[in-house]
Design a binder for these strands. Structure first.
Lengths: 207, 207
DNA sequence: ACTTTATAGTGATTTTTTTCACATTAATAA
DNA sequence: TTATTAATGTGAAAAAAATCACTATAAAGT
């Protein structure tokens, strides 16, 4: 199966578009519909599908429910994925309160911070001190972690996560984590995103 | 000049790494240092630099300050970029309070919401009703907008932004904005980011 | 001053990704 | 029933991106 990063991102977009099309009552779609909805070409859509062995009907397009089901399979949506959040600053809190994870079968199992005023065993998502991080990951077999701590603490938190058995990390700290292990790391850097945007806006002005 | 998306992202990462190296007292760096710090190859670093006409010294590497300066030029850091945020839910608030934009010459000029309890003319970043959005963009010649409203409102907000003259949008709403115009749109979808991570974690388990 | 060495810079090559274009086929129409 | 049409699926071609491998050269060493 494909290892093309862009292809995975596109599949994710297709799924997102499909869910909205389904809500609108669509029963079948054509590759061109998905292309329009996600800003790509119909050939690209079909090629992506073919990489994942997703097929439709000649002249009949694709069945929306079938597509969604196959994509849910790709992204492991038949299982619940437990996630922990480390760092309850603004971003951590935003994630904690974020609706919409549930329908993606993502469950926030716990959050961690160093600030004792934030601890709370009894909230829907319990908040524990950082010292309990390793123990919690191991006991609950957590595979996914979000790092939302300041940059100086990020590498240290990452090391604890790695040692405790985390397999995937979403990193909001504005540094590239030093990662030799097999842990998958996706970085989201808000400054960089805006910077990137500015680059393209400037480039567009020049042309 | 290059139109390679990945290359721009890498340049951004190099800059981030350079700032940290500078803080550690580094005066010069080699392509291999930057490669290590950002998880790429030294040949890639040099190739990226050559696309932007960035040069160093044979056997002497690159001067850190020079590199940072050239990259700041690329990303328009000599100008202040005014940004508005629409939607003061969790993500909007997180952005509003986000430190670190200043040093990137990004200034949040105002925020907008429909909830009147959030309005505040006198805070450091004023919060206005959505009705004032168009007027504010035009009067202050805002070029960059952040959409942090629920999905159902996102397209509508985007249309207002487009009509008022916005050139670049960072979209946190979980939909692909319908964009035929020349406006640059970068999407950040938290669910999709986690989903993506899960894909790679599952893929790693299988192999 | 000369030699050695380590690193930048880059054309050539390889790999990856996207696009093209057409054969195939299922639905519709005649 | 047969012809027509409109979409899929995919091998081939093109384009884009990454890697390789070598030249040039500036710094360090002798």
């Amino acid at each position: 199966m494909s290892t093309n990063k862009n292809c995975i991102v596109r599949i994710s977009r297709y799924k997102n578009a499909l869910n909205r099309l389904k809500a609108l009552g669509f029963v079948k779609v054509f590759s061109s519909n998905l292309a329009d909805a996600t800003g790509t070409s119909s050939a690209q859509v079909r090629k992506d599908f073919s990489l994942f062995g997703i097929t439709g009907n000649k002249r009949g397009g694709y069945n929306v429910d079938d597509l969604i089901e196959q994509m849910n399979q790709i992204f492991g949506k038949h299982l619940v994925h437990k996630v922990i959040i480390v760092g309850l600053g603004n971003i951590g809190k935003a994630l904690l309160r974020y609706k919409g994870f549930e329908k993606e079968s993502i469950k926030i199992a716990a959050a961690f911070d160093i600030d004792s005023s934030k601890f709370n065993d009894n909230s829907i998502v319990p908040v524990y001190p950082l010292e309990k991080l390793s123990e919690f990951i191991k006991e609950n077999e957590i595979k996914l972690g979000v790092i939302a701590v300041p940059d100086v603490a990020a590498q240290q938190v990452f090391e604890i996560m790695k040692k405790s058995g985390i397999k995937g990390v979403l990193n909001f700290a504005p540094i590239s984590l030093n990662n030799d292990s097999g842990v998958v790391v996706n970085n989201i850097n808000l400054e960089m995103e805006l910077e990137n945007l500015i680059y393209y806006v400037i480039a567009a002005e020049k042309s």
